[in-house]
Simulated scan of single mutants.
Amino acid sequence: MGFKEYRGEKITVYFDGDICQHAAECVKGLPEVFNVKAKPWISLDHADVKNVVEVINRCPSGALKYKI
């Protein structure tokens, strides 16, 4: 599968579903950005970039990466 790219106005997030451990740190941390019931499930323009980075840095598997 590899990384899937999600672009926002100020940040791009990459998600690797192959290594995701489903700890849900992202979903619990910013449900308005990381919503598994939505398509696409990552919507980056619903939160401040600083908050998105903070939540991504809590990802225990490293499945989420970002580029500003």
Rank of each mutant, 00 (worst) to 15 (best):
M1E: 10
G2T: 07
G2L: 09
F3K: 15
F3T: 09
F3Y: 15
K4A: 10
K4F: 03
E5T: 15
R7Y: 03
R7A: 13
R7T: 15
G8D: 06
G8A: 08
E9P: 00
E9R: 15
E9S: 11
K10P: 06
K10R: 10
K10S: 11
T12N: 02
V13S: 06
V13C: 02
Y14A: 08
Y14K: 08
F15I: 01
F15R: 00
D16F: 02
D16T: 01
G17L: 06
D18G: 14
D18Q: 15
D18V: 01
D18H: 10
I19S: 15
C20R: 04
Q21Y: 03
Q21T: 08
H22C: 03
H22T: 11
H22A: 07
H22F: 01
H22D: 08
H22R: 13
A23V: 08
A23W: 10
A24H: 05
E25A: 02
E25W: 00
E25V: 03
V27A: 09
K28F: 07
G29L: 04
L30M: 10
L30R: 08
L30V: 06
L30C: 12
P31W: 03
P31Q: 05
E32W: 13
V33G: 00
V33I: 14
F34T: 05
F34E: 05
F34L: 00
F34Q: 05
N35P: 12
N35A: 05
N35W: 04
V36W: 12
V36K: 03
V36Y: 11
V36N: 05
A38M: 04
A38I: 10
A38W: 11
K39V: 10
K39Q: 03
K39M: 08
K39Y: 03
P40G: 09
P40Q: 00
W41H: 12
W41A: 06
S43L: 14
S43H: 14
L44A: 03
L44F: 07
D45L: 04
D45G: 09
D45Y: 05
D45Q: 04
H46G: 06
H46L: 13
H46K: 13
A47Y: 03
A47E: 02
D48P: 06
D48H: 05
K50M: 01
K50I: 08
K50N: 12
N51K: 13
V52G: 13
V52E: 07
V53A: 06
V53G: 03
E54I: 01
E54C: 04
E54D: 11
E54A: 14
E54M: 13
V55T: 08
V55A: 05
V55R: 02
I56K: 06
I56L: 04
I56H: 00
I56E: 09
N57A: 05
N57F: 00
R58K: 14
R58I: 00
R58T: 09
C59K: 07
C59H: 01
C59T: 12
P60N: 12
S61A: 15
S61K: 15
S61N: 14
S61H: 13
S61C: 15
G62Y: 10
A63Y: 10
L64D: 02
K65Q: 13
Y66G: 04
Y66D: 08
K67M: 13
I68S: 14
